[in-house]
Every structure is written in C-alpha cells, then in structure tokens.
C-alpha cells in the first residue's frame, strides 16, 4: 500500500510516498535519485547496497521503508562532503577499484567496521567484510586500504 514516509538520510529529512514494502535501496535509487548505493542481488547476499542505519552497516535491499521511522541513514553520498573520509582516501591511495561497481558497498562496510573497531586485525577485516562480494577480485587491496585507513 502506498503511504507517506519521512526518512532521514545524510542528516536531511525527505518526504517520500512509496509502497510500504519498498526497500530503502529503491527508495534511494528510483525516488530520491541517489545512485551511489548499488543494486547487486536484492537478497542481502552481496553487500553492494550497504548503507549505515544508526551507524551500523546494513543491506538497504532488505530494509522496507516502513521500518525506518526514527532512524538515521547514511549513504555513500553522505559519508563525506568531498570524498575525503579516511576510507575513501585510502581506497584511492591503494588504487583498489577495478570495475568499481561493488566499491560503494565495500567502502560503507569498511567505514562501519572502523567506527566500531578502529584497529581491526586481519581476521576482523575478513570476517566483517565477508558479506561484500567483488567479482573483479580486489579483496587483498581492500584489506590493505582498510589497514591504511586505520593507521591514519
């Protein structure tokens, strides 16, 4: 059923009319035109759509808009004003990306990891990042970039 919702994304409140079951992913992409959050699988298995919900990494394809009342969402567009979040800078420094499609989600997961675990072990990184798939195979660079961001 179509309803009116108020969602707080990147510190700004948006009024949205949408089907109550519409996942945040499609609210972001199709209604609000924020396309940094990527569609990869729609079943919470690949992590391309990762955003922060009250600071925690979540899969936006699994979050219906009706469940977002009173929450704060951060997307890749809101991670930093100029692309200068330590994780984003590390991603450029380590030259992580190949095709780049999964990297928004990888970066959002990495930023959430470092927020709660500022000095992660290799095992911490591997375990936390396991929900984010990269077909190009940039995992070893992602790990280096997270370690670099943690060291700053």
């Amino acid at each position: 059923m179509i309803k009116k919702y108020s969602v707080k994304i990147n510190k700004k409140v948006h009024q949205v009319e949408a089907d109550e079951n519409m996942p945040l992913l499609w609210v972001l992409r199709d209604i609000l035109g924020m396309e940094g959050t990527k569609y990869g699988c729609g079943v919470g298995s690949c992590g391309a759509c990762t955003v922060h919900l009250n600071g925690d990494a979540v899969r936006s394809c699994q979050l219906p808009i009706s469940a977002l009342a009173g929450t704060e969402i951060t997307t890749i567009e809101g991670l930093s004003a100029k692309g200068d979040h330590p994780v984003q800078k590390a991603w450029v420094d380590v030259d992580v990306a190949q095709c780049g499609y999964c990297q928004s989600g990888q970066i959002m997961s990495a930023a959430a990891l470092l927020k709660n675990t500022p000095n992660p072990t290799e095992e911490d990184i591997e375990n936390f990042m396991t929900g984010n798939i990269c077909r190009c195979g940039t995992y070893t660079r992602i790990k280096k970039a997270i370690q670099l961001a943690a060291s700053k």
Partner: peptide
Amino acid sequence: QKNVVAPKIAQGKPLFGMDYR
C-alpha cells in the same frame, strides 16, 4: 599511475549504465 576514475568510484558517483536516468 592510479586509476583516473578512482576518486569518483570512491564517492559512488553514477558512472554505470544502471545509474543512468
């Protein structure tokens, strides 16, 4: 030399066909 598109990728810019509208 680093990927010239890397800063845009790291900011989630709409670079892909999927992002076109």
